[in-house]
Design a protein around this nucleic acid. Structure first.
Lengths: 202, 202
DNA sequence: AATTGTTTAAAATCTAGTTTAAAACAATAT
DNA sequence: ATATTGTTTTAAACTAGATTTTAAACAATT
């Protein structure tokens, strides 16, 4: 039982990396086995099929990377502070793992039907509490009345889309990796400012 | 030579549809041949390889769908009117073909390296003239001084990202196709307002 | 009738996912 | 210690399907 978890984990980790880098359909089981340093058949032994392995990996990725964000949305912070923290945390997370967004985008296209049936997928989207907060503060008059659905879509669009088209932005503006990261850091303030301004009467 | 262009076009069209729907890697040459009603080997005869066919299709899709948008950006309209028209035209175009964005996102992930080398790819991004206009009007004081790179990224993020995550938005908000389209129509005004407001001093 | 371009059919080649069967290993019971 | 049992690993085979190549058939044109 010693090596058991170990092998399973090695397969899982190798496949995660490869799927994110090259895409699920361009990664063969032989690639995975070779990267994990294990025998071909072990993938099947532990995960039954490649598609099954993918499901496990995808579910895990969503869970791991949305936990903190959902906690922020559901916290008792005021709206401004909450948005600031959310934008910050989200961008930090994506900077750490810049392949996440492109990978998710590819998966949405690849596994459209399957994906909406996965329970974990609701993690990718906003929370009831946050929507309510926007409505409440609108009624209270601390902010302009704002449609929470549009607002949330605005927010995640502004945060995540640049990562989806990262190669284009870099190419077009002749940015190095470092330049891009700086650009993204600039965006933290920029996005927060934009969103807050959109909620102010003026 | 009568059927020549015809057959080539049939392959091209069938492949375009299938690639957009199911993704390049989940479409087989047999699928294409069968959908086009032609013999398997004809794909090779006309396009040499599947990857080659894909390149031709991708280039064509980008060209076809960016022409009008680039014309708007390069026109002599005032900034406000230009933004209004651009948002409108872009959203109309994507509504007509809601698979375009998810497909492009998947391709960016799939063909990262290749893509930045394609000449056509610069079409996907803003124009020099538009950037200059933002800088100029900022200096002239008709708008707040605005970084054109951030502004342009904001604009295309807000316009296109909702299409990239369409299934999630629909699922989360229990929208039908029609509901989603109405949501998107709402966004025309919403996005234009947001962008213009962001450029106003206040 | 010959040439050229187009289409078809069949075969070869290659790649990939999955399965099988047997061997190696580890733990536990005898 | 030996045997038994269950788990893990290995190597090879199987299956299916994809792409590509080759050669033959066909059609149109010269």
């Amino acid at each position: 039982m010693a090596k058991n978890k170990n092998t399973e984990q090695k397969i899982f980790d190798a496949a995660t990396e490869l799927f994110m880098e090259k895409g699920v359909d361009r990664t063969s089981v032989r690639d995975i086995a070779s990267k994990a340093g294990i025998n071909l058949a072990l993938m099947n032994y532990y995960f039954r099929s490649k598609e099954n392995l993918f499901d496990a990996i995808f579910t895990n990725l969503v869970k791991e990377n949305t936990k903190d964000l959902l906690n922020i949305l559901d916290s008792d912070l005021g709206l401004e502070e909450k948005i600031r923290k959310y934008v910050d945390a989200y961008i930090d997370m994506l900077t750490t793992n810049p392949l996440l967004v492109p990978f998710f985008m590819a998966i949405i296209h690849r596994s459209q039907e399957k994906i909406t049936q996965m329970k974990v997928i609701s993690n990718l989207y906003g929370t009831e509490k946050f929507s309510q907060q926007i409505v409440d503060e609108g009624k209270a008059g601390t902010i302009r009345r704002t449609d929470p659905t549009h607002f949330f879509v605005d927010m995640i669009s502004l945060i995540t889309f640049p990562f989806a088209i990262r190669p284009l932005i870099m190419d077009r503006n002749e940015m190095s990796e470092e330049d891009f990261n700086n650009f993204i850091i600039e965006r933290k303030e920029h996005i927060t400012g934009l969103l807050l301004k959109s909620m102010k009467e003026c």
